[in-house]
Design a protein around this nucleic acid. Structure first.
Ligand SMILES: [Mg+2]
Ligand SMILES: [Mg+2]
Lengths: 221, 221
DNA sequence: ACGCCGCGCCTTTGA
DNA sequence: TCAAAGGCGCGGCGT
C-alpha cells in the first residue's frame, strides 16, 4: 500500500517531499492554502523549522495558523524541526516562553505538536501518518474534546478588565464587594474609592468612561 | 503568584517535586489515582521516562492510561523524559512504531505529548503549566484588539467586547441605543433582544454573565 | 492563545 | 503633608 501525500509547492526546497518518495509515498505537489502536507482528507501537517517556530510564537502567528488548521482539518499536526536544547543554550530565549507557547497550542487550541530532529524524521513522521490514516481501520471516530471553555469566574474578571486601570486583582476586589457585574457597573464613583487599589483619581476615570455619551466619529482612522 | 501543584507520592524519588519547589511552586503530596501531577482542577500531567514510555507503547498500556486521564481531566498532558534519538541509535526499536504510538495518542485519543530532556525540564514545564492555568487570563480567544492609544470611543467599545458574543459592531449598536456604558450594562434581557444581532439566546447569555454571583474557585488544598 | 521584567503612575500607610 | 513602599497596568524584549 503506497500512501499518497499532497505537498505544498513551497515545501519543495525543504527536500522533505523527496524523502517521502524515497520512503515509498506518492507525492503530489499543489498550492495549499493551509498546512504544508496533507496526509489524508482530514489530516494535515504544518512543518516549521525551530527558528521559524520560535519567531512565530513571539509574533503570535502560530496561534492563528493553528486555529485555521483546525478549522479545515479535524486531525492537524505541527511538526517542529530542530533541537530545542540548542535554542535554550545559544540564545537568550526564555525556555518558559516556549513551554507556554507549546502548552497554548496543545491544550488551549488543541493542535498537537511533535518535534523532529531533522528533515528525515519529519518525512518519516508524515509517512507514518499518511500510511495509518489511509489504511482501513475500525477505529471509533475521534471525539475531540472541546477545548477551552472559559470558566464563569474568568469571564467575569475579563469583562471588568475592559475598564481602565482594572486588572485581575482590582477586578476580583470589585466582584468580591458587589457580587455581580451588573452591580459593579452600577456603582457610583464615591463607592469605588473604597476599593483597595482604587483612589479618587482612578474611580473618576472609570466613571467618566461609564457615563460618557457615545459619539461616533464620522471618519475612520 | 505561587502556583500550587499536587504530586503523586510515588513521584517523590524522581526529585521533580523538589525542583518544582525550587522554582517557586507549592507542592502537596497526595496519593493520586490517575496522573502524576495536578496543575489545576482540570489539568493533570503523566510523567514517563522514555524507557517506560516505549515499553508502555508496546504493551499498549499507555493508551488506556491516556484515555483514563482524559476521562477525569479535560486538559491532560503526557511528558516523556528522555531523548528519542538515543533510543533509535542504541536499540533495534523501529522508529515508525514510536511515531505510530505518538500519533495515536495525540490524534486518535487526543492527549498531547511533550518531550522533556531531563527532570529539570519536566519540572519547568509543569511549573509553567500550573502558573498559566492558575493565573487570570488577560487575553481572550475572541479578539479584543490591544491598542496603544485609546480614543474614548474605542474604550467604550472595548469595554463592551468583554461580553460574550459582543464584537465591535454589536457594541456600536448597543451604545447607539443606550448612549452610555452604564445604561447598556443596566439593560434588562428583554430589551437586548431588540438589538440587531442579538436574539433571545445571546441576550440570555449576556444577562446570565452580568447577573452571575461571583464565586472564587481557587485551586487549593 | 508565549513569559518575563522594568517603568511609571497611583494608592496606601504611617509619621 | 510628606515619604516610602507596594500594587497595578502597560509596553518592550527575545531569534
Ligand atoms: Mg511551514
Ligand atoms: Mg508515571
Amino acid at each position: 500500500m503506497k500512501p499518497l501525500v499532497y505537498a505544498d509547492t513551497r515545501e519543495q526546497p525543504s527536500n522533505v517531499p523527496e524523502i517521502l518518495k524515497s520512503l515509498g509515498a506518492r507525492v503530489i505537489f499543489e498550492a495549499l492554502t493551509v498546512g504544508d502536507y496533507i496526509a489524508a482528507r482530514d489530516c494535515a501537517v504544518e512543518r516549521k523549522t525551530l527558528k521559524d517556530f520560535v519567531s512565530s510564537i513571539f509574533q503570535a502567528r502560530i496561534f492563528d495558523q493553528a486555529r485555521r488548521l483546525l478549522e479545515v482539518y479535524s486531525k492537524p499536526l505541527i511538526i517542529v524541526e530542530g533541537n530545542l536544547t540548542e535554542i535554550f543554550e545559544k540564545t537568550n530565549i526564555q525556555s518558559r516562553s516556549i513551554w507556554g507557547g507549546l502548552l497554548a497550542l496543545m491544550l488551549d487550541i488543541g493542535v498537537p505538536v511533535l518535534f523532529a530532529r531533522d528533515r528525515y524524521e519529519t518525512a518519516e513522521i508524515i509517512f507514518t501518518l499518511a500510511k495509518r490514516e489511509q489504511t482501513e481501520k475500525k477505529k471509533a471516530p475521534v471525539v475531540r474534546p472541546k477545548r477551552k471553555m472559559w470558566t464563569l469566574e474568568q469571564r467575569q474578571l475579563y469583562a471588568l478588565m475592559g475598564l481602565p486601570n482594572v486588572g485581575p486583582e482590582i477586578a476580583k476586589r470589585l466582584l468580591r464587594k458587589y457580587e455581580t457585574l451588573r452591580k459593579v457597573f452600577a456603582a457610583p464613583e464615591h463607592e469605588l474609592w473604597h476599593i483597595e487599589g482604587l483612589g479618587k483619581k482612578r474611580a473618576k476615570k472609570i466613571c467618566e468612561l461609564l457615563d460618557a455619551i457615545f459619539e461616533e466619529k464620522q471618519f475612520k482612522e
